[in-house]
Design a protein around this nucleic acid. Structure first.
Length: 527
RNA sequence: GCGCGCGUAGCUCAGCUGGAUAGAGCGUCGGCCUCCGGAGCCGAAGGUCACAGGUUCGAAUCCUGUCGCGCGCGCCA
């Protein structure tokens, strides 16, 4: 129960409104409207830049802001330019954002695309609020899946020699496996049979990593750190983690395996950490996961955010419990998780079933090739992460003219067009000395308010780790811009009006540019 | 069966952490091109916010239950 000061939905209710009187009415035993009047009487409205305060409905107080308050805001906006909507409140604290983290066992699919868009936008949002972000990609390049990959490639090599060899149980059947097998043979004349499994494995991982890197580059996502799971083994971090967990006293042996008492930390059953001898005696997957997150902590990241598909949500509690059980002062909520729901791909009016092992799925690359990078980014970001996302490829392609991302980009291009046609360098439009009170049309007032809301919106989206708020805001604001553009002419108006509108066009251009950039989408000057 | 998420217009989805008459895009219907780009704008139709209770001045939003959908639940990762 916190009193709110907010933008009313309906402009008839003023520029700002508060429910303070209604919140206080009950504890004070007073009527809300009487209390509201007393509150208004006690306020120094002029000093706050408020022109009028009215009591409305059950006890709202609606404020109307003096026009020069809006003018001050616009001036500050234009002066801030590219920096508008950014603040330094996090003071350069380090934060690690891990996303995509695809196994090098195949190309990136649509789910990875959603993660790439989300993780990159979340990182940008955090940077906009003063965090020092490290974008990190974790490669699971060790373990059973990689052995399956190597064996699958090996089988394809053998098949090329006319041998009757099947892809092993749990192996990969995609067409790309054949291609890798072909390239392996081409580049390894000394091993036409693919007999050297270790060489096949290394070659396949390297090829797939290269391909994933190309996909990420096409999508415009850059990582600061690529962390290899295999390095954890090479540096003894996995064994060390096991030793530390044993030393911390949360383990026991049963049936020849080593167990972690995760039930001590609220799990519904204990988990095996190291398999019994007859199962190979290897650590289970979550031990390297824990070891990996220890390195994040030890690398100085007191905040870590993982962007993952919700199909991995069971790892959340286990990784956190493993870190707790080490008893080294890592807080309970470490790391934070942003889980997104599944992406359904629609093509030809039917759902494309995604199965990596059967080799049937849509890749990030397919989407980029078909609808363009900007549209793919926007489509992945326009919905809240915990909603399932339906990505209709045909629709995204065929309706590209009415695509929301083009709508936003068009608004930006229109603002640029005003300056281009007027032969005015937009950067010289500062708003200094402009009489903003001539901007009295309702569409102009609404647009100004929307533009001035932008910094608070960015701060809120960053705090909630929800980039979709920026996407919907931009679409909404683009609508206000188109409406204004359509009703209010800028060039060849009387000088005071033209200068005020030029400043407003400049402000709109800045907000759209900054917002699109935050989402990793281009802001073209003409389309 | 248990856990997490979701259920809002014909379809795809927003709804700013409890506010005033629930919004947008697409689709449908009807208007607007001497005008900085019509890739645009305006208007109309379309809703039991899955359902039933509860909390309070006030619920799409919070709590409980029911139904439906998705994803998890291995000495796989």
């Amino acid at each position: 129960m916190v009193p709110a000061l907010e933008r009313p939905r309906d402009p008839a209710f003023g520029d700002w409104a508060t429910n303070l009187a209604m919140m206080l009415a009950k504890p004070l035993g007073r009527k809300p409207r009487d209390l509201a009047q007393q509150l208004i009487d006690a306020m120094d409205l002029a000093r706050a830049g408020v022109r009028a305060a009215e009591i409305a409905g059950p006890g709202f107080i609606n404020f109307r802001v003096a026009t020069d308050t809006l003018a001050q805001g616009l001036l500050a906006l234009v002066r801030a330019g590219r920096g508008y909507g950014r603040d330094a409140s996090a003071a350069g604290q380090p934060v690690n954002v891990e996303f995509v983290s695809a196994n090098p066992t195949g190309p990136l699919h649509v789910g990875h695309g959603r993660q790439a868009a989300l993780g990159d936008a979340i990182s940008s949002l955090l940077e906009a609020t003063g965090w020092k972000v490290t974008r990190e990609f974790y490669y699971n390049d060790a373990g059973a899946q990689i052995m399956n990959l190597a064996a699958s490639v090996q089988a394809r090599v053998a098949q090329r020699r006319g041998r009757d060899v099947e892809i092993p149980e749990g192996g990969y059947h995609g067409e790309y496996i054949r291609e890798i097998a072909q390239r392996y043979v081409d580049e390894h004349p000394g091993d036409p049979e693919g007999a050297n499994l270790d060489a096949v494995r290394q070659f396949a991982v390297r090829e797939l990593r290269k391909e994933q890197d190309r996909d990420l580059q096409a999508f415009g996502v850059k990582f600061d750190v690529y962390f290899l799971e295999s390095s954890l083994y090479a540096e003894g971090k996995v064994d060390e983690t096991i030793r530390r967990l044993v030393a911390a006293g949360h383990t026991y042996e049963k049936d020849g395996a080593l167990w972690l008492k995760t039930t001590d930390f609220g799990d519904d059953k204990d988990r095996v950490m190291r398999r019994s001898a007859e199962k190979g005696g290897e650590p289970t997957y979550f031990v390297p996961d824990v070891a990996y997150h220890v390195t994040k902590w030890e690398r100085g990241f007191r905040r870590a955010i993982n962007v993952q598909g919700s199909d991995h949500h069971s790892t959340v509690t286990r990784v956190r419990i493993g870190l707790q059980a080490l008893d080294i002062g890592i807080p309970e909520g470490y790391p934070e998780y942003v889980l997104h729901q599944m992406v359904t791909v629609m093509k030809g009016g039917e759902e494309v079933k995604i199965s990596k092992r059967a080799g049937s799925y849509v890749t990030v690359r397919d989407l980029i090739d078909e609808v363009g990078r900007d549209a793919v980014r926007y489509f992945f970001l326009m919905r809240k992460g915990d909603s399932q996302l339906q990505f209709d490829v045909d629709l995204a392609r065929s309706q590209s003219e009415e695509n929301p991302v083009y709508y936003i980009q068009m608004a930006h291009a229109r603002m640029c067009g005003i300056f281009r046609v007027g032969e005015i360098d937009a950067a010289t439009v500062t708003g200094e000395g402009v009489e903003f009170s001539v901007l009295e049309r309702p569409e102009e007032q609404e647009l100004i308010k929307a533009l001035l809301d932008y910094p608070a919106l960015v701060a809120g989206a960053a705090q909630a780790l929800e980039p979709h708020r920026v996407a919907t805001y931009l679409h909404d604001t683009a609508g206000k811009i188109h409406l204004w553009y359509h009703t209010a002419h800028v060039l060849n108006e009387p000088a005071p009006l033209m200068h005020a509108r030029l400043a407003l066009a400049r402000a709109a251009q800045i907000v759209l540019h900054n917002g699109l950039t935050l989402l990793g989408i281009s802001a073209p000057e003409r389309m």
